[in-house]
Nucleic acid binder design. Structure first.
Lengths: 346, 346
DNA sequence: ACGGGTGCGGAGAGCGCTCTCCGCCCGCGA
DNA sequence: TCGCGGGCGGAGAGCGCTCTCCGCACCCGT
C-alpha cells in the first residue's frame, strides 16, 4: 500500500531521464546560469515525471544553509511540566508572534522551528546546535530579564533578532514597540478623559517592556502634574491583574483611572473592579496594553495601546533573512510606534 | 570578533585528536556497540576539547532521519494575511497543543517545525517535502472538515497523527477526546442542577468535534426526556458565541440552561446573557467546553468540560515517534475521557 | 596445540547534492 | 582560413557523517 521502500527519485534519476548530467539538472532547478531553453524544458518535464523533490539534507550539507529559522523561547528555568510555559503558549502574545513570523517566512520558503530553552546549560547547547545547522538564524523571545542568550548568539556571530529590547545592550538586532510612548498615550488619554487620580498596574519590574511602560507612564503623568502614581505589580497574567487591581484599590480607593500594563491583566482588573462595586468607565476608567483578543473579550471592551506584534514579527524576519544572506551586515533595530485604540472602558 | 570563518570541528578532527578513526568516534557518540572504556573516555575528552557538535545535515543524509517532526496546521484556504489564522494562533487551543507537543518532544530530543498549509496544491507539495526529509513525521491540526491531508499522508505512507477525529475515516492514527461523552457530562450536570429548559450553542455543523458534541448532547438530553434541544450555531470564536447566545435567547427566552460547545464562545455568551439581563447561574446556567484559560477569565468562572489537550498532544507524539521508529506499526487511535469541571456558572 | 568463535577498531564506500573546473563548440575578427 | 574568446554542459570532487565489511587479537573447547 505504501511506497515506503521505493527509493525516492534523486537528481541522478532525473538527469538520466532527461539525458543530461546531474549538474545541468541542478542548474535548472536552482535557476543558476543560463541553460539552453530546450534542455531547460526537457529537464523540467523529467522533474515532474519523476516527482522529484530535492533532498534537504544533501543540499544543506553542501550549501550550509538549512532554509529554517528557529523561534527560540528562552526562559530562566527548566520547564518540564512547568505550568508557566503552557500559560505562556496560551497567551495571545505567543500566537500573534507565531502568526506574524509564519506569514513573513512563507513567501521566502523558509521553515519555522520551535525551540524551548531553559537552563543555561541548554542555552550553550542550543548555540552549538544552531551553529551546526539547526537553523540559519533565530528569533528570540526572551521571557526573563538577564537572559544570556542574546549575548551568546552575538558572541557566536549567529544571525539573530530579539523580539523586545534586551535588558542589557547587546550587539544584536531587535524589534520592539516604543513602550514608553505607548504608556504615555495611555496617560494622555486618561487625563484627557478628565481623570485626576490615576494609578497603574505594572508588569514585573525587571522585564524591559514592563520597565519602559512604567517609566513612560510616570514621565507622562508628571508632565500632567501628577508626580506620584500609585501602583501595584502583576506578572502579565489574568489572575495577577485581578489581584493587583484589588490591592491598588484597597490602598487607594479614590482612583478614577488605571493604566494596566497588558490586556490580560486589565481583563482581570475589570473583574476586580466589578467585585469592588466600581463601574467602568463611570467610576474608574481602564486602559490596557497590547490590543490582544482579551481586549475585545472583556466587558466593557478595553481601551488599549495597540502593539503591532504581527508587523514586528514580520520585520524581525526581514532583518534576520537579510542578515542570513549577508552575514557582514551590522545589527539593526526597529522600534514600532504604538497606537491608542479607544473602546468602552475609558 | 566572530568565529564565523573558522571551520567547525568535524568528526575527522575529533578522531585525529583522539588518535582513533572516525568510525570509533561515531560509535562513542552514538553509543553503538561496545568501545574500550579507555578509548571511550579519550574520545569524549576530544569531543569536549574541540567543542564538537554533529552536523545535522550530514547525519540526516545517511540515516534518513531528521530528528524533527512537523506540526501541520491545515486550513482550507490560502491565509496570506488571513485574519482567521492569527485568530487561530491566539486561541488557547493552539498554545496548549504546542505546549503539550514540546514537552513530550523535548525528552526525545526531537525538534518541532511549524507548517502552515492552505491550498490543495500546497498540500501536495507539503507531502513531497515531508517525504524528502523535512520531517520524520507530522502532527496534523486540521481546521476544516473535508481535509484531504490525512488521506494524502496515509497514501504516502508517511508517519502522521491527527489531532481530533478526521471527518471521514482514514487509515491514520489520531488522538481525540470523547466529545460525545463530554457533551453528555454537560447535559447530565445541567439536569442535575435542576434545569429543565436547556439549549445549546454549537460549533460549526461540519467539524467532527462539533458534530460529536452536538450528537452527544442531544442523545443525553433525550435520555433525560428533552427530545428537542433549541440551538444556535457559532464558529468557536468569542464574538460568534455572543451572537449565537443572543439569537438563542431571543428565540427561546425561557431557557434556564445552555451548553456552549467551547469556552471562548461561552465567554462571549456570558456577555450576551448579562446584556439581556439574565443572571448566571441564577437565571441561566452555562457550561462550556475545553477548560481553557478563557474559562477562568470569565465571570462567573465557567463550569466546563475539560479536554486534556496537553496530554492528547503528548500522546500524539508518543504514537508518532513509535511509528517513526517502526514504520510497520499499524495506525492506532487514542480517545481521551473528558472531565467535568464545576465552577460558578452553573 | 589448534580450529573457530567473539569482540573491538579501522578502512572506505557511499548518502544526494552543489559547484568548480574543464573541454567542447560556435561565432567572430584578422 | 585560422585563432581566440565566450557560453554552455559534463565530470568529478567533495560536504560530514554512518555503517558495513574486514582484520586482528584474544579466549574458549577439545
Amino acid at each position: 500500500m505504501t511506497t515506503d521502500n521505493a527509493r525516492l527519485p534523486t537528481l541522478e534519476d532525473v538527469a538520466r531521464l532527461a539525458g543530461v548530467s546531474r549538474a545541468t539538472v541542478s542548474r535548472v532547478i536552482n535557476g543558476i546560469r543560463n541553460v539552453n531553453p530546450e534542455l531547460h524544458e526537457v529537464v523540467w518535464n523529467a522533474v515532474h515525471a519523476t516527482g522529484y523533490v530535492a533532498n534537504r539534507a544533501a543540499r544543506s550539507l553542501v550549501t550550509r544553509r538549512t532554509g529554517t529559522i528557529a523561534l527560540v523561547v528562552s526562559d530562566s528555568e527548566s520547564h518540564d511540566d512547568d505550568p508557566f510555559m503552557s500559560r505562556f503558549f496560551s497567551d495571545p502574545f505567543f500566537g500573534r508572534v507565531v502568526g506574524g513570523l509564519l506569514s513573513a517566512l512563507r513567501p521566502a520558503g523558509v521553515q519555522l522551528a520551535l525551540q524551548l530553552v531553559g537552563a543555561d546549560q541548554a542555552r550553550a547547547r542550543l548555540v552549538g546546535d544552531l551553529r551546526q545547522g539547526q537553523a540559519d538564524g533565530s528569533v528570540v523571545l526572551s521571557l526573563h530579564p538577564g537572559d544570556t542568550l542574546p549575548q551568546l548568539l552575538a558572541d557566536a556571530g549567529l544571525p539573530g533578532v530579539v523580539i523586545g529590547r534586551p535588558a542589557r545592550p547587546v550587539p544584536i538586532s531587535h524589534v520592539d514597540v516604543a513602550n514608553d510612548q505607548g504608556a504615555a498615550l495611555a496617560a494622555d488619554h486618561l487625563v484627557a478623559r478628565g481623570r485626576r487620580r490615576i494609578g497603574m498596574v505594572t508588569g514585573p519590574v525587571d522585564v524591559p517592556a514592563s520597565v519602559d511602560r512604567i517609566a513612560g507612564f510616570n514621565a507622562a503623568m508628571a508632565r500632567h502634574g501628577q508626580s506620584y502614581v500609585p501602583s501595584a505589580t502583576g506578572n502579565f497574567t489574568h489572575e495577577s491583574g485581578e489581584r493587583a487591581m484589588r490591592e491598588l484599590l484597597v490602598d487607594h480607593p479614590d482612583l478614577d483611572g488605571v493604566f494596566v500594563a497588558n490586556d490580560l491583566m486589565a481583563q482581570g482588573g475589570l473583574n476586580a473592579l466589578q467585585e469592588l462595586g466600581r463601574r467602568v468607565p463611570a467610576d474608574v476608567a481602564v486602559v490596557g496594553f497590547d490590543d490582544s483578543s482579551a481586549a475585545l473579550a472583556a466587558r466593557p471592551q478595553l481601551t488599549t495601546v495597540r502593539q503591532p506584534l504581527e508587523d514586528m514579527a514580520a520585520e524581525a524576519v526581514r532583518l534576520l533573512l537579510a542578515r542570513v544572506d549577508d552575514p557582514t551586515l551590522a545589527s539593526t533595530s526597529v522600534v514600532f510606534a504604538p497606537e491608542l485604540v479607544v473602546r468602552a472602558s475609558s
